[in-house]
């Protein structure tokens, strides 16, 4: 998406932070915005996930516009 000039955001938990950044670099997108949220997501219900999204949405929009923040 980023390569197609579409502003893109990747969301990863802390345990997958290295993966997200290394993979972005491997794909030629070292500046890809990556939002890091607490690990783990696995035990969370969909509602809990939606709550995280609701709480973090503004920060993520800002991240898409301005680059990496944590």
């Amino acid at each position: 998406m980023q390569k197609r000039q579409r502003q893109t955001l990747t969301i990863a938990t802390t345990a997958f932070q290295v993966l997200a950044r290394t993979q972005a670099k491997a794909l030629g997108q070292p500046e890809l915005p990556v939002a890091i949220i607490p690990h783990p997501l696995g035990p969370l219900s969909l509602k809990e996930l939606h709550d995280i999204v609701d709480r973090q949405l503004d920060a993520m929009v800002k991240l898409v516009c301005e680059g990496n923040i944590k």
Partner: peptide, 10 residues
């Protein structure tokens, strides 16, 4: 595949 343990291999 560059799946190094502790890096991309989680």
């Amino acid at each position: 595949g560059r799946a190094l343990p502790g890096e991309m291999d989680r």
